[in-house]
Simulated assay, not measured.
Amino acid sequence: MYPLGVAAAFEAAARLGYDGVEVIVLSDPITQDATVLRRLADRHGVPVTSIHAPTLLVAQRVYGATDPWVKIDRSIDLAHELQAPTIVLHPPFRWQREYAAGFIDGVAMREHERDVVLAVENMFPWRARQRHIQAYRPAYDPVPQPYDHVTLDLSHAATAGSDVLDMQAALGPRLAHVHLADGSGSMKDEHLVPGRGNQPCGEFLTRLAASGFSGDVAVEVNTRRGGGRTREADLTQSLAFARQYLAAAAGE
């Protein structure tokens, strides 16, 4: 919903018929405040179903901490307070050497000790002057890594040039969370409305529903370019697309 605030996101989710929201923890204090988020969820009847930890490049100073584990632990605290079952996080940046070296074990330990799903998201190589730069450790692709839970983002897969259906099949039950968007394979991470790129979004959702997937599908599309009517139309279309293909697989 950027550049609109958190309250606007809850209001739109309720009005358009979404089942829940994913809150990304950023510098906005509301995204870090369980009391305010719970109040918004109760007011609009839309629960927080997932928390996105502040592991983005723009979120390095969130929670006033430079230690990434502190930010992840604070995100786990927030998720527990809101009864949100899933936390999404990105793999470490390559310059975070100590964090990266212990990342796999640290994720596994926290899942076991704190009874939470930490779903590591697929990313993509950065590009400069037609060169690929490996910005993440141990890798931008979580599929070969020993994570118990993974988030698949279809826009990120498009940017990486990855086959998202192959990734889906390879992950099997480890696929815990989905960021639904589309992409054209551009060097930029586009987050298009599903159906507007070249990713097999419909087939992906059909296979997802047929597999007995019990996680959440979070719409993550870029609505910054349009005004209010365009944003609402994009969010409405994205929701209708998701419901169409998920229901078709379920025989509804």
Results as ranks from 00 to 15, higher is better:
E121H: 14
D166L: 12
A139L: 07
S162D: 15
P173V: 11
P146H: 05
R129F: 10
G172H: 13
A170H: 07
W126R: 06
G161M: 01
A176P: 05
D141H: 12
A176T: 06
L175K: 02
D141E: 09
P144M: 13
V164H: 02
E121C: 09
E121R: 14
A158P: 06
S155L: 07
H149Q: 09
R127T: 15
H149F: 15
R127G: 04
A169F: 03
D141G: 04
D182S: 11
H177W: 08
S184I: 03
Y140E: 03
W126Q: 05
F124L: 03
D153Q: 12
D141W: 08
F124R: 01
A157P: 03
I133P: 03
A139P: 01
P125E: 08
S184C: 11
A158W: 10
H177A: 03
A128I: 11
W126D: 01
D166V: 03
L180S: 06
R129T: 00
M167G: 02
V164M: 13
G161V: 01
R127N: 09
L180R: 11
V150S: 09
H179L: 08
A181W: 07
F124A: 06
D148M: 00
G172E: 12
H132Q: 13
L180K: 12
D148I: 00
A160N: 04
L152H: 07
A135T: 07
D163V: 01
D148A: 15
P142N: 11
V150A: 11
P125S: 08
D153I: 07
R129V: 02
P142E: 12
